[in-house]
């Protein structure tokens, strides 16, 4: 317990998330009592808040407990994302490719558990090569490029990229950093929604995602950059990384990475002609609908922080 909450930022983030969910529940309860919202909206609000109340302990708990649980949680998250992607795209019908990607996800997370940075990185080309050759013995070249393409995208996103989140936990001081990424990526979505609603204006990419506005994107970029810089200054203050420009840049990476991840999933869904990737999380949709923003943020922030020597090398 004392190690889990050793850093004040950890305490702050956990307290803030518990507070926000409690506040949301209180507001919804108040609105329900005064009868100011329709029953349908009330149900939707409860569903979303309830989902968060289940999701947050599942997200923050493993990070607080330790390195091993963090990496296991990232592995499970990667496999759940793969499952949804497989079923939405139809890749699950190619059992060999789907199994190879799953194997790659397990392998890359094992490398991060083993703190074997060389293998962690090598798995990128190795898995791609394995995917490229593994269906050749089936002697069915029909659709070869399609299944390999789908398989490589799946491994790169849910294996190689997402596993960076787990690898970060090999740093002794990982808790506040990982918690900051997990929470600010979600707040980035909230900023985009709120600024978009408040300011309005032209749409960002109407064919990809009809509800997103330019004002929302810029608002989120500014809001998240400042928020991340503020939290990160408490983590990296007094070190060379503590320079305000570097911290704002970290925030910008979180915001841009998060929004790009969101738009990437929107593009996939538009192309497939489906609304949600799944139905696992009531009020949110699938696992990917919730965690899409993390996919690009994890590797981008990892390598930025490593470049600045802000997290320990392997």
């Amino acid at each position: 317990m004392s190690t889990a909450f050793a850093h004040p930022v950890t305490i702050g983030i956990v307290a803030a998330t518990v507070g926000v969910v409690a506040l949301a529940a209180a507001i919804i309860a108040l609105l329900s009592v005064t009868g100011r919202v329709s029953p349908a909206l009330r149900r939707e609000l409860w569903l979303r808040t309830g989902s968060w109340a289940v999701l947050l302990p599942l997200m923050l708990g493993p990070v607080l407990i330790g390195r091993v649980t963090t990496i296991i949680a990232v592995t499970i998250l990667g496999l759940l994302c793969l499952r949804e992607y497989d079923r939405a795209t139809g890749l699950f019908r190619d059992v060999v490719v789907a199994a190879t990607v799953a194997l790659g996800i397990v392998a890359v997370n094992w490398a991060s558990l083993d703190q074997w940075y060389g293998f962690f990185m090598a798995l990128m080309p190795l898995t791609v090569v394995l995917l490229a050759v593994v269906t050749i013995p089936l002697d069915s070249p029909d659709g070869y490029i399609q299944r390999i393409g789908l398989g490589i995208v799946a491994y790169m996103l849910f294996g190689a990229s997402l596993a960076h989140l787990g690898y970060m936990s090999n740093d002794p001081n990982y808790r506040p950093i990982v918690l900051m990424l997990l929470t600010t990526v979600a707040i980035n979505d909230v900023f985009a929604f709120t600024f978009g609603k408040l300011i309005g204006g032209p749409k960002l990419l109407p064919a990809t995602s009809p509800n997103k506005t330019i004002s929302g994107a810029v608002g989120a970029l500014c809001g998240t950059s400042i928020l991340v810089a503020l939290i990160a200054s408490q983590i990296f203050g007094g070190t060379p990384v503590g320079h305000p420009v570097l911290l704002l840049l970290l925030g910008a990476i979180v915001s841009i990475g998060g929004q790009c991840g969101d738009l990437m999933l929107s593009s996939i869904k538009r192309d497939l002609g489906i609304k949600d990737m799944g139905v696992v999380i009531p009020g949110h949709g699938g696992v990917l609908d919730r965690f899409n923003s993390l996919l690009l943020v994890a590797p981008a922030t990892f390598h930025y922080l490593r470049y600045l020597d802000a997290i320990a090398p392997a």
């Binding site: 079923r87 939405a88 795209t89 019908r93 659709g143 490029i145 789908l150 489906i274 949600d276 139905v279």
Partner: peptide, 16 residues
Amino acid sequence: MSEWRFRPARDHGLTL
């Protein structure tokens, strides 16, 4: 090159 042959699962969008 063959037509795009991948389709979402027939049961996509159903709860467990």
